[in-house]
Amino acid sequence: MIIEFESDVFRWSARDDMAMYLTAVPPELGEDIREIPRPYRGFGAVRVRARIGRSEWTTSIFPDSKSGSYVLPLKKSVRDAEGIVEGGPVVVRIEVLDA
């Protein structure tokens, strides 16, 4: 399954010294992903190949209890390469690998 969407980047921090930058999968697409039969992974993670601009990487998306959907972590190397900033929009292509 391949999905594409546009979403804003936000910062999540459990502690002051540990911040992550994420973008959220729209809830309706999250429902589609949740319906795919796949093996259970820790924390409900789903393995994906993500693409933003010219950057492509393999990672996992994680369930988000707030939205009921998933969030995609954005690595620093990808943020730097694509000029991604907090609050800015990104166009994301995700291929679900756990299907």
Results as ranks from 00 to 15, higher is better:
residue 15 R to T: 15
residue 49 R to E: 11
residue 6 E to D: 11
residue 70 Y to A: 00
residue 98 D to H: 03
residue 20 M to G: 12
residue 70 Y to N: 02
residue 93 R to S: 05
residue 44 G to S: 09
residue 12 W to H: 09
residue 98 D to G: 12
residue 83 G to M: 07
residue 73 P to Y: 12
residue 86 E to Y: 05
residue 34 R to P: 10
residue 31 E to G: 08
residue 15 R to W: 09
residue 4 E to R: 12
residue 89 P to Y: 08
residue 54 R to Y: 11
residue 11 R to D: 10
residue 23 T to W: 02
residue 28 E to F: 05
residue 4 E to Q: 13
residue 56 E to K: 09
residue 56 E to L: 10
residue 92 V to D: 01
residue 34 R to I: 10
residue 93 R to K: 14
residue 26 P to E: 02
residue 78 V to Y: 02
residue 80 D to K: 13
residue 26 P to W: 04
residue 72 L to D: 08
residue 45 A to K: 01
residue 37 P to K: 09
residue 62 F to Q: 03
residue 4 E to H: 07
residue 90 V to L: 02
residue 26 P to K: 02
residue 53 G to V: 00
residue 92 V to Y: 01
residue 30 G to F: 02
residue 57 W to K: 04
residue 80 D to P: 03
residue 80 D to A: 12
residue 1 M to S: 11
residue 74 L to D: 00
residue 53 G to A: 05
residue 21 Y to L: 11
residue 62 F to E: 01
residue 52 I to W: 05
residue 45 A to H: 00
residue 19 A to L: 09
residue 42 G to N: 14
residue 70 Y to S: 01
residue 96 V to D: 01
residue 30 G to P: 02
residue 19 A to Q: 12
residue 75 K to A: 11
residue 32 D to V: 15
residue 26 P to A: 07
residue 56 E to F: 04
residue 17 D to Y: 10
residue 59 T to M: 06
residue 62 F to H: 03
residue 98 D to C: 08
residue 39 P to N: 15
residue 82 E to T: 10
residue 55 S to T: 10
residue 52 I to Q: 04
residue 54 R to M: 13
residue 95 E to V: 01
residue 5 F to M: 03
residue 56 E to Y: 04
residue 67 S to C: 07
residue 9 V to D: 07
residue 24 A to N: 05
residue 7 S to I: 04
residue 9 V to G: 08
residue 87 G to H: 02
residue 45 A to V: 07
residue 79 R to S: 03
residue 72 L to V: 08
residue 66 K to F: 11
residue 58 T to V: 15
residue 68 G to M: 08
residue 56 E to Q: 13
residue 79 R to F: 10
residue 35 E to S: 15
residue 18 M to N: 15
residue 89 P to W: 08
residue 69 S to K: 05
residue 78 V to R: 00
residue 96 V to P: 03
residue 99 A to G: 14
residue 50 A to E: 00
residue 28 E to A: 12
residue 34 R to Q: 15
residue 20 M to I: 14
residue 67 S to G: 14
residue 61 I to P: 06
residue 38 R to A: 11
residue 91 V to D: 08
residue 98 D to E: 13
residue 87 G to Y: 04
residue 18 M to A: 14
residue 40 Y to F: 13
residue 34 R to G: 13
residue 67 S to V: 07
residue 68 G to W: 09
residue 11 R to S: 11
residue 65 S to L: 11
residue 95 E to L: 00
residue 58 T to N: 11
residue 5 F to D: 01
residue 92 V to W: 03
residue 49 R to H: 06
residue 7 S to V: 01
residue 91 V to I: 10
residue 2 I to D: 10
residue 69 S to P: 06
residue 47 R to K: 15
residue 63 P to H: 06
residue 75 K to F: 06
residue 15 R to H: 13
residue 82 E to L: 04
residue 11 R to H: 09
residue 94 I to M: 09
residue 96 V to S: 02
residue 8 D to A: 14
